[in-house]
Design a protein around this nucleic acid. Sequence first.
DNA 1: GAATTCGGTTGCGCCATATGGAACATGAGT
DNA 2: ACTCATGTTCCATATGGCGCAACCGAATTC
Lengths: 260, 260
Amino acid sequence: MSTLANCAAVLRLFSAERRQLSVTEAAALLGIPKSSASRLLKAMREEGLLRNVAGTPRYEIGNLLFEVARLHRSSSDLIELADRELRELTRQTGHTGYVSILDRADVLVIRMHRGTHPLQVVTPLGARAPAFATANGRAVLARLTDAEVRALHRGGLRPPSPAAPQDMEALLEALATVRRVGHCTAIDEAIPGVGSIAVSVADPERHETLGFCLSFPAAAVPGRERRRIRALLVGAARRIAARVDDPFWRGIAPQLPDAA
Amino acid sequence: MSTLANCAAVLRLFSAERRQLSVTEAAALLGIPKSSASRLLKAMREEGLLRNVAGTPRYEIGNLLFEVARLHRSSSDLIELADRELRELTRQTGHTGYVSILDRADVLVIRMHRGTHPLQVVTPLGARAPAFATANGRAVLARLTDAEVRALHRGGLRPPSPAAPQDMEALLEALATVRRVGHCTAIDEAIPGVGSIAVSVADPERHETLGFCLSFPAAAVPGRERRRIRALLVGAARRIAARVDDPFWRGIAPQLPDAA
DNA sequence: GAATTCGGTTGCGCCATATGGAACATGAGT
DNA sequence: ACTCATGTTCCATATGGCGCAACCGAATTC
């Protein structure tokens, strides 16, 4: 296992639920000896990738990462277009909206607009989830060929819930539907009780694809409201697609209002 | 040179002015052969630390860093207290305010409040600068002993301008003044034409120190306005210090209005 | 169209880095 | 004083990473 692979593995141990890490925890979670973990964490601290929690031997994310992450290109014309449309959709519906990009087999939240609805779903920026089990994820996976989708999931799927696609065939079938109708709905998949409806857009010139969605408590949003959300998202996607000359949306027939 | 040191060196090549990097550029900037640079960047991409700019062989900051940087503890009770006071100072004066922390011999901006003044200085979040040549930096360095300050600058100072401290003795003298009066002014130091006035606060229980400042175009802010800014900052620092039981401020006599 | 230049990649031998077991150090709890 | 958990260091060993040389493909120049 290379040093960089170890380093990345350490960074991936951190999460919203685990903002600190001890040497012993790192050794256990990575399955390596404590001496290896101790040296690795110490070396990462020396380079600014980690720092010690003040007054303790525990480790947390270092300043270098805070600094260079600002330079991550989480802004582009496409992202700004999606962000602007999403902000307006959030205003109109009250539901929280997210812009996500594909990262290997996951989607990563890069923009978020809080809704105004009293009951809402909140996923933080930087959060990742298996793409196949989210609306945004499937919206973006639909932009790939079946072969590319299979290649991303060589290790197979691990469905987080019965509502998510249970195997590759089910996933590919779901993606075929997304390609046909242009939007994607996920209910009770990555997060129980949560529904999302998503669309995707791509800038072919810059080889850039993203998904954006509105999320809501599944039980609180009836079918009529879901159709409204879907229509708003599709409308937004079409406007963006026209701007960036995204051929995907030209191939999607306008839906009749009751089409599921 | 260790792999992690090389990795960090690559990450440090990125900046607001250099958001992309080619193999050849990396080799030249790091002084290593192109084969080494090629393999290093490729390995970092494979771990998510970097990614390729779509459609090119060039590299940019990877998604993993965007993701884990969210977990950087750039929020704490102390930071929130400083942030709140700073927001109010920004509102009252119109000048841009920054909260920074020390990172080795640099300061790193972790919070920023844009002013409303038509002419203003803007430094992005995550930006770093040599602590000894900034107001925030010296405010925080003043919390260290002279020995600790010397240890941070073993390689000597490289003053960015004639207005900055030119050597260690000048720096230590400037820090002695900060310890005596509690605030620090820097004019034309890190950035020509820019002035800043800063104070620091520390939470002794959590071993945490930060500086916060207001920045302004030096030529546009007369002495009377500077004294007002200073008084506001000192007042804010004293309120925070009272909250977190910071003994530093108890040792600083209240200043007469004309004290420099 | 051929030659040259540039950016990036690969093969391969070598060695400096990284590893992990064992022993040790430190602090907390009893 | 003893036990236990956490973290560190020593040391022998393994190998990941390095850098030279050669190569590849695309773009540029003549």
